[in-house]
């Protein structure tokens, strides 16, 4: 079985305990207005260009077999004299991923770390992820998920992890649909399942100015989490001001309709009052 991986990042320091290697899985059912990993959205390979290096020499266009629309076939990648093209999304087998990750197992262990599955939404390739957890069973395993997946899929994947990091973006269903493209009913049900699973978990909330960082959203989210025994902490993620940087290289447009410049509120105390450890990343 193969999966589509768009990056394997060594030495990730914000994606779980210790030093971690993150496997980024391609494809996401959500379309969050603030997404900073646009190359992970499509479930198919995407061509990425580092625009700052491109000199518009046209060599890539000369070899393109489908000038009508990019199919991410990769024909242009090796011919670029500036090396500014790459294909995000490689088809890999579990053993390919293991071959990349496991040589560093001793270091990951020494540093109290492990492997984190991220994306995209890793549960869009849940069967592959579960296969991966078997190939990587000797290291600490963690999954970063939006929680947007069929309940049985979610539960099966959670069972294979040592730790789950789940996003709660917006508590209100209509707002959730407005800013991410999907409702949050499924996410809430999966959160309940996670709370009942006995699996240690962290919750992450992106602080998008004027969207998710309001007091009401934080309070309602804290309410969901009250008395969740295996919740270890809540992390509030700063809005990534460079979120838009990669869009042009994918021939996509970043058009946030919230105010990027406004400093987000960091309402850490709301969680602390509910006896939930909370930190800003």
């Amino acid at each position: 079985m193969t999966g589509l991986v768009f990056d394997i990042e060594e030495f990730a320091v914000f994606d779980g305990p210790g030093i971690r290697t993150v496997v980024f899985l391609k494809g996401c059912p959500l379309r969050c207005a603030w997404c900073h990993n646009p190359e992970g959205l499509s479930p198919r390979p995407s061509r990425v260009k580092t625009i700052a290096l491109c000199v518009e020499c046209g060599t890539c266009r000369a070899v393109c077999p489908s000038p009508g629309g990019c199919t991410a076939c990769g024909a242009c990648v090796p011919v670029c004299p500036k090396n500014c093209l790459r294909i995000a999304g490689q088809s890999m087998m579990p053993q390919d991923v293991a071959a990349r990750v496991l040589p560093n197992r001793a270091l990951l262990e020494m540093a109290g770390g492990g492997v984190t599955f991220s994306g995209g939404e890793p549960l869009l390739q849940a069967d592959f992820v579960i296969e991966l957890t078997r190939a990587l069973s000797t290291v600490h395993l963690c999954m970063e998920t939006s929680g947007y997946a069929p309940e049985d899929v979610f539960t099966r994947a959670v069972d294979c992890m040592d730790l789950v990091i789940m996003d709660i973006k917006l508590a209100d269903t209509r707002e959730h649909r407005r800013w991410t493209g999907v409702g949050n009913e499924l996410i809430k049900r999966n959160l309940e399942a996670l709370k009942q699973s006995g699996k240690p978990f962290w919750i992450r909330i992106p602080m998008i100015p004027g969207v998710t960082d309001g007091e009401q959203n934080m309070r309602e989210t804290a309410e969901f989490l009250r008395s969740a025994r295996h919740l270890q902490k809540v992390e509030l993620l700063r809005y990534n001001k460079a979120a838009g940087a990669k869009y042009a290289g994918l021939d996509m447009v970043y058009a946030p309709t919230f105010s990027e410049k406004e400093p987000p509120q960091t309402l850490v105390d709301i969680f602390k009052e509910a006896n939930i450890p909370c930190a800003v990343l």
């Binding site: 394997i8 060594e10 030495f11 290697t21 040589p103 270091l107």
Partner: peptide
């Protein structure tokens, strides 16, 4: 490419 600080350090 396809390697990071952990592999390099090791």
């Amino acid at each position: 490419s396809d390697a990071g600080p952990l592999s390099v350090v090791r």
